[in-house]
Write a protein that binds this DNA or RNA. Structure first.
Length: 733
RNA sequence: GCGCGAUUAGCUCAGUUGGUAGAGCAACCCAUUUACACUGGGAAGGUCGCAAGUUCGAGUCUUGCAUCGCGCACCA
């Protein structure tokens, strides 16, 4: 077969004589791009491919966690960004895409702890802080290297010269600067309150790191003592040794007369209690007995009631979820054991009135899966309700809500606007301290009663730095500007590229990341972090399940690439997947786009084999009327997709280009060309070849953002005057 | 309890401002040809979840309902 072709078309590029081979092409092309320097907009200007007065387009990569390798969700996210980035670069903009990784404090630390325990049977304390952190850094470095190579495999045209890490020197400087400013403005404070304690991870977590899981639980209804007038219901009898009040609804006629009275209980499972009856509208008259035992130390709601009513608080449970008061029957017991001890005591004393099974949502820690234990603790918080003098006395909440409400930040799809606003309206102060080693250490030092917040340790002896580190999202919140040189306000990158044009995260990190970026940028820069946020959905497996380690359904993008090529994978991920929609990954779809890549390849083969010695002339005019119509059809298509690209509808554009290339160009236009090309009318033949070449050139160009590798490879073969890389060739207008 | 999304061909999904329903895969028939079998041609397959409304006209707009999924709240 090879021989037949060679004999017939001796002058065609030999690459075209065999089917398109992505594996032998992609790495070579990526290297070519990297060496050109064109991923860096400064070099594009320097080398004259971008006008020095061009508009800016900037986007930050949502930094992947250094907890492992990238999955198809990342591949999806990277592809969409690269499509946009390549499009804008070809439109002639100064286009900057910034890469980076996230240290993902808790996630990475617990991953390394797991490995340490599994492989060496050690705990982090066995190594000590310094040695353990070395291990984490090593792990993070390996993970980082894999991630970088994966991003390159995806064809990302991202500026590696500006790569950042949320925990590197520059970002640490930005974090300390931000912390200090917030501390001085009174936005960051240290407070003692009931927080979400993760007994497994041995750290506090924020409200957003909680996952609610439905469980069956027993609802016990009982009285503290025979003389106590009101029965209460609880699922956690073991905490009742810490009760200091019973709350009832002020409108509840049954309990009205008791409000304000205090009852002494000499023995409640070995502990004496002093219970005051208080009124609070948070109490639901219809739940249980309509009366609620208030345990200020171990419930957020109870804690708030206790503050309002000036009630004492008794801590019952420690950091290891063990009981720390009472007699031998309770002391040192795990909460679950103690629960049964108290329940049995109630039965024995004939105080138990009922035990009913109910459905309950239990709070668990996102990372460790442990059941959250609300505990009173001294932690660092960001006050979201304090008016800020330097920002027109607006609160952080207001600063977050405003730009979205006013449309200054465009949210795509717009239904996420509601979710965003709703989240912020319900926002409580953000707990930012974590009792873990890995991460940005809190820049606060103590000496006795003295406290100092600054960029460096204060002068003098005896100062000890806070041992906690910061919530990883504190540094992620700075990402759009910490990557551009902030806090140096004179940084050219910061001036030119901020606010960034768009950010494209998954909707699941709306509260974690997107809202925090708005918070940080609005407060620290007095400006939005991005003009548009485009939320994408989740890539699921073919059955609609989330990819996860426990389901063992992971697909390595590299395996897909090795079999079908990056271009095919990119098309399969992008085409037909609208903003905010989840998508089921379908290998058949990838296969179909591999066929498409080969189709383009063969269109080129046919065209070039008929264009021997002819160079494409964009100014050629000797077309027949029908060819003129075909050119208009082609131009119309390009205007249409250009409009759609500007509206971020690349999921439609990919499909249209596919349909035109295959069903129009290959199936109709090339087929009808065959009779012309085998005829004797030389003028007609030339016009036809020019038309086909023109179409091929245009299609190759506009397909480039979607299928960068095969189009770049083809570009090097096409007979055009323009011989610079396709990635910096102008998009047809 | 409040809110959001989905429901279109056997499967996975597109469908812009309302104007004769589309793609990929699968299944069926034909074709070995001056690109391509990773192919081409052809045919088949849908009362667009249900019901009502607006309209000359509804997959698209309005209302109600159903099923599935998700978020938030409650979670004593």
């Amino acid at each position: 077969m090879q021989d037949r072709m060679m004999a017939k078309e001796p002058n065609i590029d030999p690459k075209l004589l065999s089917p398109y081979n992505p594996t032998s092409t992609e790495d070579r092309i990526y290297k070519l791009w990297e060496e050109s320097g064109f991923f860096n907009p400064d070099i594009c200007v320097e080398k004259g491919v971008t006008a020095s007065d061009a508009d800016y387009f900037s986007i930050v990569l949502p930094p992947p966690n250094v907890t492992g390798t990238l999955h198809l969700g990342h591949a999806f996210e990277d592809t969409m960004q690269d499509v946009l980035v390549r499009y804008n670069r070809m439109k002639g903009k100064k286009t900057l895409w910034i890469p980076g990784t996230d240290h993902a404090a808790i996630a990475t630390q617990s991953k390394v702890e797991k490995i340490l325990s599994k492989e060496e049977g050690k705990r982090k304390q066995d190594l000590g802080r310094e040695e353990f952190l070395k291990r984490v850094d090593q792990f993070a470095q390996n993970s980082h290297d894999t991630i970088v190579s994966q991003i390159k495999k995806m064809g990302a045209s991202i500026d590696w010269s500006r790569e950042a890490f949320t925990l590197d020197e520059k970002r640490n400087f930005a974090v300390r600067t931000a912390f200090k400013k917030m501390y001085e403005d009174g936005l960051i404070y240290r407070g003692h309150r009931v927080v979400n304690w993760d007994p497994k991870g041995q750290t506090v977590i924020s409200d957003d790191e909680i996952v609610y899981e439905p469980r069956k639980a027993k609802l016990y209804t009982f009285k503290y003592s025979k003389d106590f007038p009101i029965s209460i219901s609880t699922t956690r009898p073991e905490t009742k040794v810490g009760d200091t009040a019973v709350a009832v609804n002020p409108d509840d006629a049954r309990y009205k007369d008791y409000i304000g009275k205090t009852y002494e209980i000499k023995d409640f499972c070995g502990v004496s209690l002093s219970i005051k009856i208080i009124a609070d509208y948070n109490v639901d008259k219809d739940f249980g007995t309509g009366a609620l035992g208030v345990t200020p130390a171990h419930s957020q709601v109870d804690y708030e009631m206790a503050i309002k009513n000036n009630l004492p608080s008794v801590t019952v449970i420690n950091e290891y979820a063990q009981i720390i008061i009472g007699g031998e029957n309770l002391l040192g017991k795990k909460t679950t054991e103690a629960r049964e001890v108290v329940a049995q005591w109630l039965r024995d004393e004939n105080l138990m009135e009922s035990e009913v099974e109910i459905d309950q949502n239990v709070s668990t820690a996102e990372r460790t899966g442990a059941i959250i234990e609300p505990l009173p603790k001294l932690q660092w918080f960001i006050n979201v309700n304090k008016p800020i003098a330097s920002r027109d006395n607006k609160t952080l909440k207001e600063l977050m809500l405003e730009p979205v409400a006013s449309g200054k930040i465009k949210v795509m799809p717009d239904r996420f606007e509601k979710i965003y606003s709703h989240w912020i309206e319900n926002l409580r102060d953000w707990c930012i301290s974590r009792q873990i080693w890995y991460g940005h250490r809190i820049p606060v030092w103590y000496r006795g009663e003295e406290i100092y917040c600054g960029m460096e340790a204060p002068e003098g002896d005896g100062w000890e730095q806070d041992t906690d580190s910061l919530d990883t999202w504190f540094s992620s919140g700075l990402w759009t500007f910490s990557t551009l040189g902030w806090p140096d306000l004179e940084s050219a990158d910061l001036k030119n590229y901020h606010p960034t044009t768009i950010v494209m995260p998954g909707y699941e990190i709306l509260p974690f990341w997107v809202a925090r970026m708005v918070l940080m940028s609005q407060y620290l820069l007095g400006d939005i972090p991005f003009h548009t946020v485009y939320f994408h959905g989740i890539v699921r497996d073919s059955k609609g399940q989330k990819f996860s380690k426990s389901a063992n359904n992971g697909i390595d993008p590299i395996d897909v690439i090795n079999e079908y090529g990056t271009d095919a994978l990119r098309m399969a991920l992008v085409v037909g997947v609208g903003p905010g929609n989840d998508t089921k990954f379908d290998m058949q779809k990838v296969k179909a786009y591999k066929h498409f890549a080969n189709k383009i390849w063969n269109i080129a083969r046919f065209t070039l084999s008929n264009a021997e010695g002819i160079t494409y002339n964009p100014n050629f005019t000797e077309y027949t009327d029908s060819e003129k119509e075909l050119i208009k059809e082609r131009d119309d298509l390009i205007s249409e997709i250009t409009r759609e690209m500007n509206e971020y509808k690349f999921y439609l554009v990919g499909e249209k280009l596919y349909a035109y290339t295959w069903s129009r160009l290959a199936d109709v236009l090339i087929e009808e060309s065959k009779s012309i090309l085998s005829g004797t009318d030389e003028k007609a033949k030339l016009a036809r070849v020019q038309f086909l070449l023109g179409t091929l050139v245009q299609i190759t160009t506009v397909l480039h953002p979607f299928m960068p590798f095969i189009t770049e490879e083809l570009w090097s073969i096409l007979p055009t005057e323009n011989k610079q890389l396709l990635m910096v060739t102008k998009w047809p207008k």
